[in-house]
Simulated scan of single mutants.
Amino acid sequence: MPGVPVRGTMARMAYDEVLAQRVREIVGGDPDVTERKMFGGLGFMFGGSMGVAAASRGALMVRVDPEESEALTARAGVERMEMKGRSMAGWLLVDQSVLEGDAALEEWVERGADFARSLPPKE
């Protein structure tokens, strides 16, 4: 079914606009943040590197330190992304149920933003 996350893979469908707006409210006003459509979602770039993306059905794609992937996926509602059938360390999919509260969403957005900002700036 289009737009339904299946084992960490996003089928093609528009991103969740409500989630995107919630992310904008968290990062709003930061001149270092840009938005770009990618991976079938809306990516939020920090210094040119993607930190988080609003996916479909309220899921959030979060970029983290690959060495933290295993520990983070032990949390309920968090799994590694699969791209072209391959599990991607450092790329997580956080289920909508985890993101219901603003504090939880802010935690994941900050985690993705911090990692993206730790990467060399892109021109």
Results as ranks from 00 to 15, higher is better:
Val62His: 02
Met45Cys: 07
Met50Gln: 08
Lys37Val: 11
Pro120Asn: 05
Gln21Tyr: 08
Lys37Cys: 04
Pro31Arg: 15
Arg117Phe: 03
Gly43Ile: 00
Lys122Tyr: 03
Met88Trp: 11
Arg24Ala: 03
Pro121Met: 00
Glu110Gly: 11
Leu93Gln: 09
Gly29Arg: 11
Val78Thr: 04
Glu17Arg: 15
Gly3Asn: 13
Leu19Pro: 03
Gly101Ser: 14
Ser49Leu: 00
Ser87Tyr: 05
Lys37Met: 09
Asp16Gly: 11
Gly51His: 06
Asp65Ser: 08
Arg63Gln: 11
Ser69Gly: 06
Glu25Cys: 08
Pro2Lys: 11
Ala76Ile: 07
Met50Ile: 12
Lys122Glu: 10
Thr34Gly: 13
Arg80His: 07
Glu70Met: 09
Ala116Cys: 05
Ser49His: 15
Ala103Val: 12
Thr34Ala: 12
Gln96Arg: 15
Glu110Val: 13
Val62Ala: 10
Ala103Leu: 05
Ala11Met: 08
Ala55Asp: 02
Met13Ala: 15
Met1Ile: 11
Pro5Asp: 04
Asp65Cys: 05
Ala116Arg: 00
Pro5Phe: 01
Met1Cys: 04
Gln21Asp: 09
Gly29Cys: 04
Ala116Lys: 00
Arg7Gln: 10
Met38Cys: 03
Ile26Leu: 06
Arg12Phe: 10
Glu79Tyr: 03
Val98Asn: 05
Ala113Asp: 00
Glu100Thr: 15
Gly43Tyr: 07
Glu106Gly: 03
Leu60Tyr: 10
Ala89Met: 08
Leu119Tyr: 01
Val98Leu: 08
